[in-house]
Design a protein around this nucleic acid. Structure first.
Length: 365
DNA sequence: CAAACGTGGGC
DNA sequence: TGCCCAAGTTT
């Protein structure tokens, strides 16, 4: 038999819990962020813009996405237009945003929607989930935000808010199912998309990873982690280990005002992107071994080694590149699989940032 | 399921 | 400075 106080506490908690979704929506109506891809209050969201923004926002900050989103919708105003573009044009527009498989899948998804769905996005989680680049989070996000389906997408923000609100002790990613279940209790009966975006906005502006502004939070009196005074300790997760340094060489060959480049393999790191020829990137590789992988071009008497190195940090390893330059005569042929591009138009190439760094270092630009 | 997969910004 | 983080998906 529960004690009198236990009963009272339980009743009180239940009442509060039921009030959470509306408290969240009220907060959202006053404090929602105005973002380029977000429909104004009362307006109908455009599924194309919702989808495009959700793909771009995967593991990427709002600030970084802004200009890319504007460029994309200006050039490709709807999903059918994007489906008619070449993958290479899409990669060029995406260059610099990172995680390039997203760009390849974005294009594949646009083609699928245009050809298999008549240019209309599926309006169910299941239908969306079947499309390239759309995983469980994005399917739920589009279903809720664009189609008002009553489902709760769970991203990093929501994981943090929920793990604090309920003081989830289990570590990520094992706790994902539990967090998903708890997050779903925060869905209002209507306005599912706003419920989700309210939690995301709360996570990004109030319930931040460091020094959360709990005093401004609409759920503060209801937050288990805050009651414990350990907000920053949630979500629990194992510390991640950093990768081993890899080294390599990059070869910057110019022919007048042109530069020698090639395309990387379709899959894997920087898949399908443009690069200058280079060696493998290996842990413990010395400069001599790397230099031996220089492209074989007649007419190169010697390589000029640039002073210093180019460093770049990928998610899973840091990279150090030594850079060699060489100039060749006007009619020199590009080796098999390579091509010459004007240096003046490099901005339009599908060059990942690490390659922009290499070229800038080599050419002093 | 753990690892691969980019980049820039904050502290 | 080095580590963590950002509206995850794919294999």
């Amino acid at each position: 038999m529960p004690s009198r106080t236990a009963i009272k506490k339980e009743v009180s908690t239940a009442t509060t819990a039921a009030a959470r979704p509306l408290a969240l929506l009220q907060w959202y109506d006053r404090h929602r962020r105005r973002l380029p891809w977000r429909a104004a209050a009362g307006e109908t969201p455009d599924p194309y813009r919702v989808w495009l923004s959700e793909i771009m926002l995967q593991q990427t900050t709002v600030k970084a996405v802004g200009p890319y989103f504007e460029k994309f919708v200006a050039r490709w105003p709807d999903v059918s237009a994007l489906g008619r573009a070449s993958q290479d044009d899409v990669l060029r527009m995406w260059a610099g945003l990172g995680y390039y498989s997203r760009a390849r899948n974005l294009h594949a998804c646009a083609v699928a929607v245009a050809r298999e769905h008549g240019g209309i996005f599926p309006d169910t989680e299941e239908g969306l989930r079947a499309l390239p680049g759309i995983g469980p989070y994005t399917a739920a996000a589009i279903a809720a935000i664009a189609f008002d389906r009553r489902t709760m997408p769970v991203d990093g923000n929501i994981e943090r808010v929920v793990s604090r609100l309920f003081a989830v002790e289990e570590e990520l990613p094992q706790s994902k199912p539990l967090i998903q279940q708890l997050a779903a209790t925060l869905l209002a009966d209507t306005r599912a998309g706003d419920s989700a975006q309210a939690l995301m906005d709360l996570g990004s502006s109030i319930c931040t990873p460091k020094k959360p502004a709990c005093s401004l939070c609409p759920l503060n009196e209801d937050c288990a982690a805050r009651a414990l005074g350990t907000q920053e300790a949630f979500p629990r997760k194992a510390p991640k280990k950093s990768g081993t340094l890899r080294r390599g060489a990059a070869f910057v060959v110019t022919r007048g005002d042109e530069l020698l480049v090639r395309s990387r393999p379709e899959k894997g790191l920087l898949g399908g992107m443009t690069e200058v020829p280079g060696s493998d990137w290996l842990a413990g590789q010395d400069d001599e071994a790397a230099k031996e992988q220089a492209p074989d071009i007649k007419g190169i008497a010697r390589w000029q080694r640039r002073v210093g190195v180019v460093t770049h940090v990928f998610t899973h390893f840091p990279l150090e590149l030594v850079v060699y330059t060489a100039k060749v005569e006007h009619r020199t042929r590009a080796p098999e699989g390579m091509r010459w591009v004007p240096i003046a138009t490099l901005a339009d190439e599908a060059l990942p940032n690490v390659m922009r760094k290499v070229i800038a270092h080599a050419l002093d630009i």
